[in-house]
Design a protein around this nucleic acid. Structure first.
Lengths: 265, 265
DNA sequence: CAGTGGTCTAGACCACTTC
DNA sequence: AAGTGGTCTAGACCACTGC
């Protein structure tokens, strides 16, 4: 145990502590708060893949002893990570690394609902899975070069049998090199669930930019709409731990019977 | 318009606390946790306008003594309210009711940026401010009737001198009855700042539904675009404390040089 | 300097899950 | 029964603000 305990004053006992532990008593709070430091350490473990999606992490009291802080401090660090949806707590069981395998997070990134405000189940069809160069907007988002090769996936999502979303997905080869159409076609869960279980890449957050446009020729064809029907263009960059961009996708949504929803607050 | 001193509202609050205080010692954790109960009580005070936007609320230790709990429990309740942006903490000064008057919250509800990802300052022009019946989508959102009268505001927002957003805003008369074009035109801050300072209505959150559409004739005219240029249709319902809907607006955004942005995570 | 929020501790007990 | 997260307390001290 550490402890700049306030009550232990000038005793021989204290000397033995100071031999094994640096003297914090003179430099309090000049660094970041302890719980922030611990949060960073846990984040580092997640970034480096020490703990993988779905893993049980050490208990709060274990972490408290290893980091030499109180359980309350550990708790505060975990609180923020749980809040960022990087960890999940289960009372009685433990604290786990968040995963996209659960049903609840299936549509966490797809903000599409029907006129009734209901999020429907989708039927997905993979149209394409190749390795090739990418448009400028893509490789710039990854801070890579025009010559670099990416995985390119094209997909059609349908709701109630009607095609609604046509999208192009781009992934950096180093991470997703051996992905294939067969693998994608055989996978029944969410795409981010697949990325996680097969490539160890967990998406933590994303940024979307939305425009109203006329559909591309190809989108109009696959979506079965007239070239003059406005569609929602959704450009997404998705990130993993440490704000590393690991996916770019450009989708076009038909919004005659659906809408993009967003909560502000 | 504010300034009931918080001491007054606080003492009223105290009475209600003393009345509802019960013996916790025999029945632990069978009700909601203490900090949740306290959070609800504070929320109630906000809903009822006991504490108004910008007001200083009692200190954590004051609240702790009035609620007969520890400071840590008060802190946990406040933590969540701060997180919801209903309260703001200022170290050394105190805890305040959140307000839309601050510069930082000026564009909290407007998710519009230019191609560079920069949120620009807008120039606003009020085109209309009348009292009249509203479309079905509006009165249904308020759970009111077709015959009911609403305030109807029409506004044009420009960025760098170019009109980009055309919007119709609907407000329930009981709350905003004496709003006028003169008042709106003379106000230089954000619209939610005006609602707050002149009508005591603080927007806490909103929900938006977004479609890609062709512009209405009127929108096309005011925005100076061709009737065949797709625009983003943003339908918003904004809420105040207690999830009460207090504003509906339908806007059309030109997205050729701007985009709607959203963070998922 | 007094008062406020911010951090941290040590310890107690409750509620839940698992064996 | 053992172990885990969830709640709560009492008290200490730090960092900041305003008078």
């Amino acid at each position: 145990m550490k402890n700049f305990s306030y009550f232990l004053s000038h005793s021989v006992y204290m000397i033995s502590i100071m031999q094994t532990k640096q003297d914090n008593s003179s430099k309090k709070y000049i660094d970041l708060p302890l719980y922030v430091q611990i949060k960073h350490k846990i984040l580092l473990a997640l970034e480096q893949g020490l703990w993988k999606s779905g893993d049980l992490i050490p208990s709060e009291s274990d972490l408290a002893t290893t980091y030499e802080v109180s359980q309350g401090t550990i708790r505060k660090a975990l609180d923020e990570l749980v809040q960022q949806q990087l960890l999940i707590r289960r009372q009685g069981s433990g604290t786990f690394v968040a995963t996209h395998q659960e049903e609840q997070s299936k549509y966490r990134f797809l903000h599409l609902a029907n006129s009734a405000g209901v999020i429907e189940d989708s039927q997905n069809k993979i149209l394409l899975c190749t390795h090739q160069k990418a448009p400028k907007i893509v490789y710039v988002s990854f801070k890579m070069q025009a010559e670099d090769i990416f995985v390119h996936i094209r997909r059609l999502m349908s709701f109630n049998g009607k095609p609604i979303v046509f999208e192009d997905i781009w992934l950096p080869c180093p991470l997703f090199g051996d992905i294939s159409l067969e693998l994608l076609a055989s996978w029944s869960g969410s795409m981010y669930g697949l990325f996680e279980s097969h490539f160890g890449v967990h998406m933590t957050h994303a940024e979307e930019r939305i425009h109203a446009v006329l559909p591309s020729d190809m989108a109009a064809e696959y979506l079965g709409i007239d070239a003059l029907v406005p569609v929602l263009d959704v450009f997404r960059v998705a990130y993993t731990y440490g704000d590393r961009p690991v996916e770019v996708r450009q989708a076009q949504y038909i919004t005659t019977e659906h809408h993009y929803f967003n909560r502000i607050g």
